[in-house]
Amino acid sequence: MFKRLMMVALLVIAPLSAATAADQTNPYKLMDEAAQKTFDRLKNEQPQIRANPDYLRTIVDQELLPYVQVKYAGALVLGQYYKSATPAQREAYFAAFREYLKQAYGQALAMYHGQTYQIAPEQPLGDKTIVPIRVTIIDPNGRPPVRLDFQWRKNSQTGNWQAYDMIAEGVSMITTKQNEWGTLLRTKGIDGLTAQLKSISQQKITLEEKK
């Protein structure tokens, strides 16, 4: 169930391209415009997507990853294993993690069937560096609404905000991946996880038929 919630949630996290980005210092504006741009692209490019579902990787690479804190999220997933990894191991892992996100997020976007969304009203940021933004996803086919909290983090150097995690039903996506990959990290280390991520990233994206 959580895996499905995570995939549905990713439908609204794909941010804007650099040329049309919203105010990078306001995570609420980023979330709002990102959702609108993403849904528009999914709707307008269905012919290309249906002809070649792996085209979704391109959308992810162009529109999402430049505005997601990939390395920060990847380091959180590694936890204690990050500090013990060599620079070469980290570089290989982050490259594999990025390719994994292209496949995983692309597969999530393949679930698009006309969903709509509501974003919580903007709250004062103050001096906060981590801000959760509640998004409610509404399914046109009558499924119950899904309420999610996207975690946005302020870059201490640039002042810009980027998304790095999502919490559904009190469970963090980062925590879920830590639990899912924990045994592999304990037995085969970061190299074993890197190899698995490379394998997963090679899987073809498949479209979910409308139910």
Results as ranks from 00 to 15, higher is better:
residue 2 F to D: 00
residue 2 F to E: 00
residue 2 F to R: 01
residue 3 K to Y: 05
residue 3 K to T: 02
residue 3 K to L: 04
residue 4 R to H: 09
residue 4 R to V: 13
residue 4 R to F: 12
residue 4 R to P: 02
residue 5 L to P: 00
residue 5 L to M: 06
residue 6 M to E: 00
residue 6 M to D: 01
residue 6 M to L: 10
residue 7 M to I: 11
residue 8 V to I: 14
residue 8 V to F: 13
residue 9 A to M: 10
residue 9 A to P: 02
residue 9 A to G: 06
residue 9 A to S: 04
residue 10 L to T: 04
residue 10 L to M: 06
residue 10 L to S: 03
residue 10 L to Y: 07
residue 11 L to R: 01
residue 11 L to K: 01
residue 12 V to S: 04
residue 12 V to P: 00
residue 12 V to Y: 15
residue 12 V to C: 11
residue 12 V to A: 05
residue 13 I to R: 00
residue 13 I to G: 03
residue 14 A to H: 07
residue 14 A to K: 12
residue 14 A to Y: 08
residue 14 A to N: 09
residue 15 P to F: 13
residue 15 P to W: 09
residue 15 P to K: 15
residue 16 L to M: 11
residue 17 S to D: 13
residue 18 A to H: 13
residue 18 A to P: 14
residue 18 A to L: 13
residue 20 T to H: 14
residue 20 T to E: 15
residue 20 T to V: 11
residue 20 T to P: 08
residue 21 A to P: 13
residue 21 A to E: 08
residue 22 A to V: 13
residue 23 D to T: 08
residue 23 D to Y: 10
residue 23 D to C: 14
residue 25 T to A: 09
residue 25 T to M: 11
residue 26 N to Y: 06
residue 26 N to I: 08
residue 27 P to K: 00
residue 28 Y to Q: 07
residue 28 Y to C: 07
residue 30 L to E: 15
residue 30 L to H: 07
residue 31 M to F: 03
residue 31 M to T: 02
residue 32 D to E: 09
residue 33 E to M: 06
residue 33 E to S: 04
residue 34 A to C: 07
residue 34 A to D: 03
residue 35 A to C: 11
residue 36 Q to A: 09
residue 36 Q to T: 13
residue 37 K to V: 11
residue 37 K to Y: 12
residue 37 K to M: 10
residue 38 T to Y: 14
residue 38 T to F: 15
residue 39 F to C: 01
residue 39 F to T: 03
residue 40 D to K: 08
residue 40 D to C: 11
residue 40 D to M: 14
residue 42 L to Y: 10
residue 43 K to V: 06
residue 43 K to N: 09
residue 44 N to C: 14
residue 44 N to W: 11
residue 44 N to L: 14
residue 45 E to Q: 07
residue 45 E to I: 04
residue 46 Q to H: 10
residue 46 Q to S: 06
residue 46 Q to V: 07
residue 46 Q to C: 07
residue 48 Q to V: 11
residue 48 Q to F: 13
residue 49 I to F: 12
residue 49 I to P: 02
residue 49 I to S: 09
residue 49 I to K: 03
residue 50 R to K: 12
residue 50 R to W: 09
residue 50 R to E: 07
residue 51 A to K: 14
residue 51 A to M: 14
residue 52 N to W: 02
residue 53 P to S: 13
residue 53 P to E: 13
residue 53 P to N: 15
residue 54 D to N: 11
residue 55 Y to C: 09
residue 56 L to F: 07
residue 56 L to G: 07
residue 57 R to Q: 08
residue 57 R to W: 15
residue 58 T to V: 12
residue 58 T to G: 06
residue 59 I to L: 09
residue 59 I to P: 04
residue 59 I to C: 09
residue 59 I to A: 14
residue 60 V to Q: 03
residue 60 V to D: 02
residue 61 D to P: 00
residue 61 D to Y: 04
residue 61 D to W: 02
residue 61 D to A: 10
residue 62 Q to W: 03
residue 62 Q to S: 10
residue 63 E to N: 04
residue 64 L to P: 00
residue 64 L to C: 01
residue 66 P to F: 03
residue 66 P to K: 03
residue 66 P to D: 14
residue 66 P to M: 05
residue 66 P to N: 10
residue 67 Y to C: 06
residue 69 Q to W: 00
residue 69 Q to R: 02
residue 70 V to Y: 06
residue 70 V to D: 10
residue 71 K to C: 00
residue 71 K to W: 02
residue 72 Y to T: 00
residue 72 Y to L: 01
residue 72 Y to V: 01
residue 73 A to Y: 02
residue 73 A to I: 03
residue 73 A to E: 02
residue 73 A to L: 03
residue 74 G to Q: 02
residue 75 A to G: 05
residue 75 A to D: 00
residue 76 L to Q: 02
residue 76 L to S: 03
residue 77 V to Q: 15
residue 78 L to K: 00
residue 78 L to C: 09
residue 79 G to T: 02
residue 81 Y to M: 07
residue 81 Y to N: 07
residue 82 Y to T: 01
residue 83 K to N: 06
residue 83 K to I: 09
residue 84 S to R: 11
residue 84 S to W: 06
residue 85 A to G: 09
residue 87 P to T: 12
residue 87 P to R: 07
residue 87 P to W: 05
residue 87 P to A: 13
residue 88 A to H: 09
residue 89 Q to F: 05
residue 89 Q to W: 03
residue 90 R to G: 04
residue 90 R to V: 04
residue 91 E to H: 05
residue 91 E to N: 08
residue 91 E to Y: 10
residue 93 Y to L: 04
residue 94 F to T: 09
residue 94 F to V: 07
residue 95 A to L: 14
residue 97 F to R: 00
residue 97 F to D: 05
residue 98 R to Y: 12
residue 98 R to F: 08
residue 99 E to S: 10
residue 99 E to T: 11
residue 100 Y to V: 15
residue 100 Y to P: 00
residue 101 L to H: 15
residue 101 L to M: 15
residue 101 L to E: 05
residue 102 K to R: 15
residue 102 K to F: 14
residue 102 K to C: 15
residue 103 Q to R: 07
residue 103 Q to L: 15
residue 104 A to E: 03
residue 104 A to H: 00
residue 104 A to P: 11
residue 105 Y to S: 01
residue 106 G to W: 03
residue 106 G to S: 15
residue 106 G to L: 02
residue 108 A to H: 03
residue 108 A to M: 14
residue 109 L to C: 15
residue 109 L to D: 02
residue 109 L to M: 13
residue 109 L to A: 15
residue 110 A to F: 14
residue 111 M to S: 08
residue 111 M to P: 09
residue 112 Y to G: 04
residue 112 Y to I: 05
residue 112 Y to H: 04
residue 113 H to A: 07
residue 113 H to F: 04
residue 113 H to L: 03
residue 113 H to D: 05
residue 114 G to I: 09
residue 115 Q to H: 06
residue 115 Q to E: 08
residue 115 Q to I: 02
residue 116 T to V: 14
residue 116 T to H: 15
residue 116 T to K: 15
residue 116 T to E: 15
residue 117 Y to S: 07
residue 118 Q to P: 07
residue 118 Q to K: 10
residue 119 I to E: 10
residue 120 A to C: 08
residue 121 P to K: 10
residue 121 P to L: 09
residue 121 P to H: 11
residue 121 P to W: 12
residue 122 E to K: 11
residue 122 E to H: 08
residue 122 E to W: 12
residue 123 Q to G: 09
residue 124 P to L: 10
residue 124 P to R: 12
residue 125 L to N: 08
residue 125 L to A: 08
residue 126 G to V: 07
residue 126 G to Q: 04
residue 126 G to Y: 15
residue 126 G to P: 06
residue 127 D to T: 10
residue 128 K to E: 06
residue 128 K to Y: 10
residue 128 K to C: 06
residue 129 T to P: 10
residue 129 T to A: 10
residue 130 I to K: 02
residue 130 I to Q: 02
residue 131 V to A: 08
residue 132 P to V: 12
residue 132 P to Q: 13
residue 133 I to Y: 04
residue 134 R to A: 01
residue 136 T to I: 05
residue 138 I to W: 11
residue 138 I to N: 09
residue 139 D to G: 12
residue 139 D to F: 15
residue 139 D to Y: 12
residue 139 D to A: 13
residue 139 D to T: 14
residue 140 P to V: 13
residue 141 N to H: 10
residue 141 N to G: 07
residue 141 N to V: 13
residue 141 N to L: 05
residue 142 G to R: 09
residue 142 G to A: 10
residue 143 R to I: 05
residue 144 P to M: 13
residue 144 P to T: 06
residue 144 P to W: 04
residue 145 P to R: 06
residue 146 V to Q: 04
residue 146 V to L: 10
residue 146 V to S: 07
residue 147 R to I: 03
residue 147 R to N: 02
residue 148 L to Q: 02
residue 149 D to L: 04
residue 149 D to C: 02
residue 149 D to E: 03
residue 149 D to K: 01
residue 150 F to A: 05
residue 153 R to G: 01
residue 153 R to P: 00
residue 155 N to Q: 01
residue 156 S to V: 03
residue 157 Q to M: 13
residue 158 T to Y: 03
residue 158 T to E: 03
residue 158 T to K: 07
residue 159 G to M: 14
residue 159 G to K: 10
residue 161 W to D: 00
residue 161 W to G: 00
residue 162 Q to Y: 05
residue 162 Q to F: 03
residue 162 Q to M: 08
residue 164 Y to N: 03
residue 164 Y to T: 11
residue 164 Y to K: 03
residue 165 D to I: 00
residue 165 D to P: 00
residue 165 D to L: 00
residue 165 D to Q: 00
residue 165 D to Y: 01
residue 166 M to W: 04
residue 167 I to D: 01
residue 168 A to W: 04
residue 168 A to C: 08
residue 168 A to M: 12
residue 168 A to Y: 06
residue 169 E to G: 04
residue 169 E to T: 05
residue 169 E to R: 00
residue 170 G to E: 01
residue 170 G to M: 03
residue 170 G to V: 01
residue 170 G to P: 00
residue 171 V to S: 00
residue 171 V to P: 00
residue 171 V to L: 05
residue 172 S to R: 02
residue 173 M to W: 02
residue 174 I to S: 08
residue 175 T to Q: 04
residue 175 T to Y: 03
residue 177 K to D: 15
residue 178 Q to W: 00
residue 179 N to A: 12
residue 180 E to S: 04
residue 180 E to P: 01
residue 180 E to N: 02
residue 180 E to G: 04
residue 180 E to W: 01
residue 181 W to M: 15
residue 181 W to F: 14
residue 181 W to Y: 07
residue 182 G to F: 04
residue 182 G to S: 13
residue 182 G to N: 14
residue 182 G to D: 02
residue 183 T to V: 07
residue 183 T to P: 10
residue 184 L to W: 02
residue 184 L to G: 10
residue 184 L to Q: 07
residue 186 R to K: 00
residue 187 T to C: 10
residue 187 T to F: 07
residue 188 K to P: 06
residue 188 K to R: 10
residue 189 G to N: 06
residue 189 G to M: 03
residue 189 G to K: 05
residue 190 I to W: 03
residue 190 I to M: 10
residue 192 G to H: 15
residue 192 G to C: 14
residue 192 G to D: 14
residue 193 L to I: 14
residue 193 L to C: 11
residue 193 L to N: 07
residue 194 T to E: 10
residue 195 A to N: 07
residue 195 A to L: 14
residue 195 A to V: 14
residue 197 L to G: 02
residue 200 I to G: 12
residue 201 S to C: 14
residue 202 Q to F: 05
residue 202 Q to D: 14
residue 203 Q to K: 10
residue 204 K to L: 08
residue 204 K to D: 12
residue 206 T to K: 13
residue 206 T to N: 12
residue 208 E to Q: 14
residue 209 E to C: 09
residue 209 E to R: 07
residue 210 K to E: 12
residue 211 K to C: 05
residue 211 K to F: 09
